[in-house]
Design a protein around this nucleic acid. Structure first.
Lengths: 340, 340
DNA sequence: TTGAAAGCGATACCAA
DNA sequence: TTGGTATCGCTTTCAA
């Protein structure tokens, strides 16, 4: 029972050739209405679903796209980006009968190996390139591999298709908020500089300062982790010229920063305002609840998938621009302390 | 350039038939050492990687396994289970040249549809069944579909292969810890009863109480979310007979519970001890840091994948048992308040 | 031990 | 508008 029904079965039942079944079911012209009807009915009755393996071999397509998450597992656990990003991808590709092949690797080198194999054994038709790094070797790789790929928030002159979200409006809004609260010295906890998005965020911070004629506050390098936020707080709060407000490159490091600042006796936001970046749910649950700049990973995933599938179909594509990041004011930011 | 090299190319280069290439590369007998060597060399030189499409069609295999996450996106973002679980799966299947096809669906009904299609178009050779529900329809589905499947932490009489982790030792240890701290009334915030693992955790709580001759403390139903934890705290802490300690069915709801309890003026752990279940990283960063029972999703993923691939290979399998959950004492639990 | 050939399940071209 | 057939890349008989 449940013997898989193939195109032959449908053809037999409808009394036509398999080529006609294929044409009919794929909505191609050159099939009479009557025949098409018979074929559809036969397929229906038999519960026929074309084998993606057969289709793939014949059409030289995998009907799948690949994503390699090259982060260590702990980050993957904590980072809210992927869940939403993946959900966004799926909401689009499902309708087109594509599947997502997900792989993980702790580092970029391993990820490259994965990408290479996904391409070598022809398991996917296209790739998502996220967490782009400076001079990211994946760009050259997909070129060699002749694989369509779409980059997520790449640098301006990125040579492949891409989807971007402008972070600046959110950071601008944050600065408006801070400045109207009397802050004039605003520090920054960065991410590892090898990541494009680390640089983008730092750049946005610099621009916002410059635009307001403010001196850049202290900057300390973090690494997007909670621990990195702790370390950043330790060094930044020991400075003689402490900022009155701090922007962290992501929410997780903001959480670490706040935790450590409180541990050191600072009241947030009375003594120090701290803001994050990402908009993770958890931020709403902290006390103080985290002021942050919210991105839209789900939409990014959706748009990235749309572009990628168009690329796979050989359609012309234009880069996508997601609605800009937005400020979410909660309680970790407030009036600057009176100058002491 | 970069024209895909196929088995034909290798055969041509080695001066043999493609069937010999196939046999040689798959390590099958009936190929002379000399020929095998020549073939290997040719394959090497050409950089040949067999197409998973061709292999799949010929061998009636997809070389892929499927996981459908049927949770809403917000949960997927916050739940640390999946990241680690997936990493565990991958660490095994990668070596065997299998890939993971990941799909998401907000609910079980949608998930069933996804499973059905993964099977119908023969995209995967096996399925992971996680977050099992009572009378879970997926069990019948995979039977109909003739698809190998492995259940994660199912009920005792589960009819399919499975991997289990015993939660009880961790909860026993927690109760030892609480009891030695003077707690005698221990409440429980449950998960939705339709989930097997909700029931398992509640059952473990009941057993631990019974074993110590303690009366079951109050029980309130949660839903594994932060908000559910808040709601549970609201109702449980309004009770005339408040417990002195509370176990929550997962860390996230414990976090909500603690947040709300603090909001209501309870000091944790001085006035009330609260423990979670899961062992998410975030728990270590809270204040108070969360006492919890730690599971091992990565190992669960690994073992589940091992069993599933054996099943796919038609090998006999036995259920896997992961090392039991363990207690992690942090600062959200402490001595019971003096009886008032 | 080797090679030829028949599938696997589709698509697509070309005659009829 | 149809049907026959080559083809995709591989595995697996089965002869030689």
């Amino acid at each position: 029972m449940a013997e898989r029904v193939t195109i032959k079965d449908v053809a037999a039942r409808a009394g036509v050739a398999i080529s006609s079944v294929s044409s009919a079911l794929n909505g191609q012209p050159g099939v009479s209405e009557e025949t098409r009807r018979r074929i559809n009915q036969a397929a229906e009755e038999l519960g026929f679903v074309p084998s993606v393996r057969g289709r793939g071999l014949a059409g030289n397509r995998a009907f799948a796209v690949g994503l390699v998450v090259h982060r260590d597992r702990a980050v993957l656990e904590l980072d809210p980006f992927f869940g939403a990003f993946i959900a966004g991808i799926e909401s689009l590709i499902d309708d087109r009968d594509f599947a997502l092949v997900l792989q993980t690797s702790p580092d970029l080198a391993g990820a490259l190996e994965r990408y290479r194999r996904l391409a070598a054994d022809r398991r996917v038709d296209g790739l998502f390139l996220n967490e782009l790094e400076v001079d990211d070797p994946r760009v050259e790789l997909v070129r060699q591999l002749h694989l369509p790929a779409v980059g997520i928030n790449p640098e301006p002159d990125f040579p492949l298709a891409s989807v971007r979200q402008d972070h600046r409006p959110g950071i601008e809004a944050l600065f408006d908020h801070l400045q109207s609260n009397g802050h004039r010295s605003i520090g920054f906890v960065s991410g590892p500089p090898r990541f494009i998005h680390s640089r983008q965020r730092e750049q946005a911070w610099r621009e916002a300062l410059a635009q307001r004629g403010l001196e850049p506050g202290p900057i300390v390098q973090g690494d997007f982790t909670y621990e990195g936020g702790i370390a950043a707080a330790v060094s930044m709060l020991a400075l003689r010229t402490r900022p009155t407000a701090v922007l962290c490159a992501n929410d997780l490091s903001a959480m670490g920063f706040i935790g450590q600042a409180q541990h050191l006796g600072f009241r947030i936001p009375e003594d120090l305002s701290v803001a994050g970046f990402d908009g993770i749910q958890m931020g709403a649950y902290l006390r103080p609840a985290l002021t942050t700049v919210m991105t839209r990973p789900r939409e990014i995933g959706y748009e990235a998938a749309r572009i990628l599938l168009d690329l796979v179909d050989g359609k012309p594509v234009t880069d996508a621009q997601i609605a800009p990041a937005e400020l979410v004011v909660r309680s970790s930011t407030g009036p600057a302390p009176a100058a002491g």
